[in-house]
């Protein structure tokens, strides 16, 4: 044996595994986008006590938090085609299941997953905004929507950003589970490549380093964003913004 690791093989495998990076990132970005929308709706339903929607949110958040992501992926992967087949049968629609790429089921599962966790994060960020300021905005005749958009959400974002950022990083790492639906993200690609040579260890080290690098970049970006937002707390507005 030459040594524990075959370095030249590792370097050779980089380009092939790297093909999974855009897929991983697309899952994280899509899920995060929908997750923010779902989370905002869920948080507002809870805070403003919107009947029905509030109860649905409670069950949804509890279910997602109480089941493994991998199981949610399976439910989405096997469940959505069943639902579509049922629709085709019941209503005579002709949606072709085999044309739907597996990644769409992954988008659904990850969006719902992110949405549940973001509901809680966004809710507590909104609740952290001083009640007095909300009353002040009402006292000058602003509507609930104006108050949310111009006073509450900008401040909630500042409070919630570190948490939301961490959730995005966690989400990106979770995308590694998408291989379970044969989606060619980083781990999916790694498995394919390692399957040919059986050099699993080398390939997974390369994959690990890729996640690590992406996360370091994300953490840096997050820190930059935070300092930008915090500038406003220094008492005086700079002329630049």
């Amino acid at each position: 044996m030459k040594g524990i690791l075959d370095f030249s093989y590792m370097i050779e495998s980089v380009p092939a595994i790297a093909k999974g990076i855009p897929v991983s990132i697309s899952i994280a970005v899509v899920a995060f986008g929908f997750g923010i929308v779902i989370g905002l709706i869920g948080a507002l339903a809870k805070i403003y006590n919107i009947p029905v929607l509030k109860q649905i949110t409670a069950v949804y958040v509890s279910f997602i938090r109480g089941t493994p992501l991998l199981v949610q992926i399976f439910l989405s992967y096997y469940g959505i085609p069943l639902v579509i087949r049922y629709f085709n049968f019941q209503y005579g629609t002709e949606w072709n299941i085999s044309f739907i790429p597996a990644i769409y089921f992954i988008y659904v599962a990850f969006s719902l997953n992110a949405g549940a966790y973001l509901t809680e994060t966004i809710r507590s960020a909104i609740l952290s905004v001083d009640r007095g300021q909300i009353e002040a905005s009402y006292s000058v005749g602003m509507t609930t929507y104006q108050s949310l958009k111009r006073i509450i959400l900008p401040q909630a974002l500042k409070v919630g950003l570190p948490n939301i950022g961490n959730q995005f990083i966690a989400l990106l790492k979770d995308t590694s589970l998408a291989f379970a639906a044969s989606v060619p993200e980083i781990i999916g690609m790694a498995k394919i490549i390692a399957g040919r040579t059986s050099q699993f260890f080398e390939v997974y080290i390369v994959a690990a380093l890729m996640y690590w690098a992406i996360c370091i970049v994300l953490e840096r970006a997050m820190a930059l964003l935070e300092t930008r937002l915090r500038r406003n707390e220094r008492g005086v507005q700079n002329d630049r913004n």
Binding site: D130, G132, Q133, E135, A136, S137, Y138, S139, V140, G141, M142, R150, I151, P154, Q155, K158, N232, Q237
Partner: peptide, 28 residues
């Protein structure tokens, strides 16, 4: 309508923390 025709000054000021002094006044 009522809120737009009454102003309120609170004990704890309750200024909008994300707005400058002048923006607080301009907001409404």
């Amino acid at each position: 309508k009522v809120r737009r025709s009454t102003g309120m000054v609170f004990q704890n000021y309750n200024l909008f923390a994300n707005k400058t002094a002048i923006e607080n006044i301009a907001e409404a």
